[in-house]
Design a protein around this nucleic acid. Structure first.
Length: 592
RNA sequence: GCCCUCAUAGCUCAGCUGGAUAGAGCAACGGUUUUCUAAACCGUCGGUCUCAGGUUCGAAUCCUGAUGAGGGUACCA
């Protein structure tokens, strides 16, 4: 039973005893005491005033007196307007260190027996990953980690869009202009090589459109009639027909892309339990169309196309199967959703996909519910905002993208430069240095992207490098390294427990109170699918520690129990920083 | 046209189911190192929480409308 809960119950009793009213627990509002006042926990007494029929101050005093007598942890209280500030015994906070915070499983919730799937990344195989994908990957990975900490069994999957007209465009351009160029011959990373031909296609295609327009066609006609797009469509038909030559080329080029992606995933530190490929799933969903027609959820128009009418739900009529019997995007997704459920029977399924697809997922989930799929209630679209450049949205074809691999390299280079300027890593081997730069560079990048609430759009200015000071990954990593340095010097081990019973300084108590909040933060982050909560929390914690570090001596304290206690407090902070950063997929260095 | 999302300090962002005088970081300016890592710490400056109504003892937070930005919109994914 948490202290908050104890206080809530006691308050409930107090109100019954004092004012003869039974107030439900939800109406007993506790909050953190603001820094400028004394105390750690605050009861808002405004809601009680109408029962006490006394002034907020008087009500606060009466409840405060009652609580002080009934709850042993409460040593003092003060009342300011409608706020009853409760001071908790230092012993309570000190006990938390031994009883909870320093336990190895602190912050790991007991298994809840539920399975959740997290689908993320989901790239197209016609171009390399860019900053938008990076946000997606980090979000997906972090959410998976957080849910694991919250007690779920998590299955991470990647649904690869490896077929379709866009893939054929790259293939065609390579056939026409590639001169057998391979990753080996060009020393280009496979995904970049294929992406290069996607851009070449687009340029050549645009040129053809212009030429056709010059010869009198409208833009619309020109787009349809350009020889290149015709050839690409032909390639798609041959692919669907299983044409050996096309399939061989497709496999070859895709394998280049996969090798490239794997390299990027590895650098980012993300992974998957299972890969789904659209080339395997694009024909799925037709059974579901039949099912929907049989259940009268769908209807057929005279041209043979199949639709669902969602106007009663405030949405539109939506096409679910083309007149020629071929699938559209949502047909595949219906089928894939069923396939995933058949594979894993998970309780929940999270799709990490950008907010440009909000409408699509609204429709997808609604259709599955209308089809009576009970598991559809566990579907959730984790919608995140686009990453914008100062010039606006990133567009692959126009070359206005921040490439993932380039960005990672730049971050590592910046980390290297900054670290060398500070010159604190004498004695590091070359290998250790490289590893450190990687940890710091990626730490800065990941923290930068994860500290922002997922649904908000995010601004990235390539001309301004990502910060290494203030609310940043390296700041937190630095705090960890500092603590580590102290613990090493003190030869501190986890077993060095003491029965410390002196009173706490203000910083010590603030730090302890912050440490006790860790599990609550995980809970909120998990429920809201938002790693940003974790990021902001660790930052607060690191700030508090730095204040503590600055204000209170640790190694130099002669009073042994105090020294011991401060070492433990340091160890606990380091421990939470490390664990919390791991939830974000960020590593912490022992020295920097 | 219709639908969805967002709007907080010069910039980038926090602000929990409505609660105290709206907080951080960056930038700017000033200070702190013979003392455990100065990627740090302390201070100053900086606000009509886009605007207008409404609900409430109490609104940055909830409701309605307006404005601005972004996204979606029936055979692209």
């Amino acid at each position: 039973m948490t202290l908050e809960y104890t206080i809530q119950l006691a308050t409930q009793k107090a109100i019954t005893a004092l004012y003869k009213t039974d107030l439900p627990l939800e109406q007993i509002v506790l909050q953190e005491t603001r820094k400028e006042f004394e105390g750690q926990i605050t009861l808002v007494t405004f809601p009680v005033v109408r029962f006490s029929k006394k002034s907020p101050e008087q009500t606060g005093l009466e409840i405060g007196e009652y609580l002080k007598n009934q709850v042993q942890e409460i040593v003092n209280f003060n009342v300011i307007k409608g706020f009853l500030n409760l001071s908790i015994n230092d012993t309570y906070w000190i006990d938390q260190l031994q009883k909870n915070i320093l336990k190895p499983d602190y912050g790991q919730f007991a298994p809840n027996g539920k399975k959740v799937m997290v689908e993320y990344s989901s790239p197209n195989t016609n171009k390399p990953l860019h900053l938008g994908h990076v946000r997606n990957n980090l979000l997906g990975y972090a959410v998976a980690e957080i849910l694991t900490a919250y007690g779920y069994e998590v299955i991470k999957v990647n649904l690869i869009n490896d077929r379709g007209i866009h893939i054929c465009k790259s293939m065609l351009a390579w056939q026409l202009f590639g001169n057998d160029e391979t990753p080996e011959s060009s020393r280009l990373k496979g995904d970049h090589l294929v992406g290069k031909y996607y851009v070449i296609f687009d340029k050549a295609y645009k040129k053809q459109i212009e030429e056709l327009q010059a010869s009198g066609q409208t833009e619309e006609e020109a787009k349809k009639n350009a020889p290149l797009i015709r050839q690409a469509q032909d390639l798609l038909l041959r692919w669907e027909a299983g044409d050996k030559e096309v399939i061989t080329l497709w496999k070859r080029m895709n394998s280049w892309v996969y090798t490239g992606f794997e390299e990027t995933y590895k650098k980012l530190g993300v992974d998957f339990e299972k890969y789904y490929y659209e080339s395997n799933t694009y024909l799925l969903g037709k059974d579901i169309i039949e099912e929907g027609l049989a259940k009268d959820v769908f209807f057929k128009k005279s041209d043979g196309s199949v639709w669902i009418d969602l106007t009663a739900d405030g949405l539109d009529e939506k096409l679910v199967l083309r007149a020629d019997g071929t699938s559209v995007y949502i047909t595949q997704d219906l089928g894939t959703a069923q396939l995933k459920y058949n594979d894993f029977q998970m309780n929940q399924s999270i799709y990490v996909v950008g907010n440009e697809q909000d409408y699509h997922f609204k429709v997808l989930f609604l259709i599955l519910k209308k089809l009576g799929k009970t598991w559809a209630n566990g579907l959730y679209h984790l919608s995140y905002g686009m990453v914008d450049l100062p010039s606006g949205k990133m567009k692959s074809r126009e070359g206005t993208v921040v490439d993932a691999d380039d960005l990672i390299e730049e971050m590592i280079a910046t980390a290297c430069k900054r670290t060398e300027e500070l010159g604190k890593i004498d004695g590091f081997s070359e290998k250790e240095k490289r590893e450190l730069y990687r940890v710091i560079g990626l730490g800065a990048l990941k923290y930068f992207l994860l500290k922002v609430e997922p649904k908000k759009r995010l601004m990235f200015d390539p001309n301004e490098s990502i910060d290494f000071q203030g609310n940043t990954g390296p700041f937190i990593q630095y705090t960890y390294a500092r603590i580590n340095s102290i613990l090493t010097k003190a030869k501190h081990t986890q077993q060095d427990g003491t029965n410390y019973s002196s009173s706490l300084t203000i910083v010590e108590r603030d730090l302890l109170v912050a440490l006790t909040k860790y599990p609550t933060i995980i809970e909120t982050a998990a429920k809201e699918h938002s790693p940003a909560h974790v990021a902001n929390y660790i930052f607060e914690l690191a700030k508090l520690y730095n204040k503590f570090y600055h204000e209170e001596p640790i190694l130099k304290v002669e009073d042994l129990p105090i020294r011991q206690f401060r070492l433990q407090l340091s160890a606990a902070t380091a421990y939470i920083i490390k664990k919390g950063m791991h939830l974000l997929g960020i590593l912490v260095p022992n020295k920097m």
